[in-house]
Amino acid sequence: MTMHSDGLTLQEAYLSMFEFIVELYQRTKSDDLGAILGDLSLLEDGTTADPAAWGDWLRCVEKARRGGVDASLVITPPHP
Rank of each mutant, 00 (worst) to 15 (best):
W57S: 11
D31R: 00
S41E: 11
A64R: 12
L37Y: 03
A71M: 14
T48Y: 00
D32H: 09
E19G: 12
G46L: 03
R59N: 12
T48H: 02
D6Q: 14
G46C: 12
L24P: 04
Y25I: 04
K29P: 04
T76F: 07
Y14S: 01
E44D: 15
I36S: 02
P77L: 07
V61N: 08
S41Y: 03
P78G: 01
A49R: 14
D45T: 03
T47M: 03
T48N: 03
H4G: 15
M1Y: 01
F20A: 15
L15N: 11
I36V: 10
G55W: 01
G34Q: 02
L37N: 09
C60M: 09
S72I: 02
A71P: 08
L24F: 07
E19R: 10
E23R: 11
H79L: 14
G7F: 04
S5W: 04
E19C: 05
E12I: 00
F20R: 08
E23F: 05
S5Y: 09
E23P: 04
D31I: 02
D45G: 11
T2G: 14
Y25W: 15
A35W: 02
Q11N: 13
L8F: 12
S30D: 02
R59V: 06
R59Y: 07
E62K: 06
G7S: 11
L15A: 11
K63P: 02
L33G: 04
F20C: 13
D31W: 00
G67A: 03
E19H: 06
A35M: 06
W54I: 04
L58Q: 13
L73D: 13
L15Q: 12
L10N: 11
A52E: 15
S30A: 10
D39W: 01
A52H: 01
R66C: 05
T2S: 15
A13C: 13
P80S: 11
L42D: 07
L10T: 06
R65F: 01
G55T: 10
L58S: 05
S72E: 11
T2W: 12
D6N: 13
D39Y: 02
V22L: 04
E19T: 14
E12P: 05
W57A: 14
L42Y: 00
E62I: 01
G34H: 00
I36P: 01
F20H: 14
Q11K: 12
L33T: 01
V74C: 12
G55S: 15
P80K: 06
G34F: 05
R66Y: 03
A13S: 12
A13G: 10
L37S: 05
L73P: 05
E12T: 00
M1I: 04
S41G: 12
A71Y: 04
W57H: 09
W54K: 02
Q11W: 04
D50N: 13
